[in-house]
């Protein structure tokens, strides 16, 4: 059994988002990067499955050299080896075609991703890889168990859950509570230093969209406070000013 987990290298969820170079580049200064939170769930579940089934576990990122600490962290959490496709991830098609090319070579049984990246929030890459490989893709998956060749899943739908089954091979976009985030321990961190991190050049170089510029939303005005003993005032504001009642 071979498992692949695709991870993003994204600004920490508390980061202030800013741009440089005339709003054409993300400003990395002072920003801490992390494994995408949904990818972290995917990775945590993959580590559990690896232990349970004796599977091999590879992590993959399409990104430039500065993403390597993030891949090392995934190795420390429990992946056996890592692959970095050495390229700026231009758009979801670019990322998906590189992932599909690697997957074709290595025949993974299960490919786990996050439900979405928290930088571009596409929620697209798993579906694209699925179409490219002719494999089913399911997202957002909040529970995933493997029994023989069968994968049993719970998927979140608006206002509830859907229980479904499929056969391997399969792609799933994960979210909580599929597993608890894992924090690397000392032994993991030590062993991660010597685990293989293979860098490969992009082989497909496909894309369909280009970002021309970034923009920040307009700043929020200051809050209008209402006295706690005069809630009628708030109701009046909601009715007459905001016109939402």
């Amino acid at each position: 059994m071979k498992i692949l987990v695709c991870i993003t290298h994204v600004p920490d969820t508390t980061s202030k988002i800013q741009f440089t170079d005339n709003n054409t580049k993300f400003d990395k200064s002072g920003v801490q990067f992390i494994i995408g939170p949904y990818d972290d769930y995917a990775l945590a579940r993959a580590v559990e499955l690896k232990e349970q089934l004796g599977a091999s576990l590879t992590v993959l990122n399409v990104g430039e050299a500065d993403t390597e600490p993030t891949l090392r962290k995934a190795l420390a959490i429990g992946a056996d080896d890592a692959i970095r496709v050495n390229a700026f991830p231009k758009d979801s098609l670019f990322v998906a075609s590189e992932i599909a090319a690697i997957a074709k070579e290595n025949n993974y049984d299960l490919i786990l991703m996050g439900r979405e990246s928290i930088d571009f929030n596409g929620g697209m890459v798993h579906g694209m890889v699925g179409q490219l490989l002719g494999m089913p893709s399911v997202s957002p998956v909040m529970k995933l168990d493997i029994e023989g060749e069968t994968v049993k899943m719970a998927r979140e739908i608006e206002g509830g859950k859907e229980y479904l089954e499929a056969k391997l091979p399969l792609i799933a976009g994960c979210q909580e509570p599929i597993a608890e985030w894992k924090i690397p321990n000392m032994r993991g961190i030590m062993s991660a230093r010597t685990k293989p991190l293979n860098v490969v050049e992009p082989s497909q170089n496909q894309s369909a969209t280009s970002v021309v510029a970034f923009k920040l939303p307009p700043a929020k005005g200051s809050v209008k406070l209402v006295d706690k003993d005069n809630v009628e005032e708030l109701v009046k504001l909601l009715k007459n000013d905001a016109k939402v009642l």
Binding site: A96, M124, G127, G130
Partner: peptide, 24 residues
């Protein structure tokens, strides 16, 4: 619509129809 089903369907169609896809 950008939604869990809509986005998943759009992603597969982007490949099948060779269409550029923008979400959100």
């Amino acid at each position: 619509a950008t939604s869990s089903l809509g986005s998943a369907v759009a992603a597969r169609l982007a490949i099948r129809l060779q269409a550029g896809l923008v979400s959100n």
